[in-house]
Amino acid sequence: MVDNLEQDQEIDLEEERVLDAIAAELPGISRDVHQLIPVLQKIQHIHGYLPLGSIGMVAAHFGIPGAKVFGVATFYNQFRFNPPGRHPIKVCLGTACHVKGGEIILENFTRRLGIEEGETTKDREYSLERVACVGCCALAPVVVVGEKIESYVTPSKVEGVITEIEIQNEIAEREKAKDEQQSDSE
């Protein structure tokens, strides 16, 4: 319980930092409303998501109502309103991937990570999304983990993908601990 509270507070703080950064960036951008979608894309590109608080700021920047910006942002698949995980997982559900069992792959991630599509794990390690085709149909089913495309994915490979990330995290942690120990002893 206490953990959750601390995590939530941390997220609030982070969102505040993101909003401050956006407020600092906006004045340098053209106020031509043709730039609305590019600006939303830019914010998401830099910060990984569009905090709801940023919608009003963008609206004020262009001098248009918040409802309009919200309407545009919620129309397109690209925009998300919660922060992505450190390892965003995108399961392709294009035609070829679907025929080859993409849905089953998505289900396996859902089960393994305990989150539904569009959600981020509480520890912000993973987020899960479905995408409508990454254009690697001949390698179906395909999953994009971070920047890397995993091809011919099977349920057991799902396990492998997560395990690999977990192992790498553990190695990183150990090395960090080692470094700290070393710097402590020095």
Partner: peptide
């Protein structure tokens, strides 16, 4: 300016 719009 308008205060409501379509969303989603």
């Amino acid at each position: 300016d308008f205060a409501l719009d379509f969303a989603k």
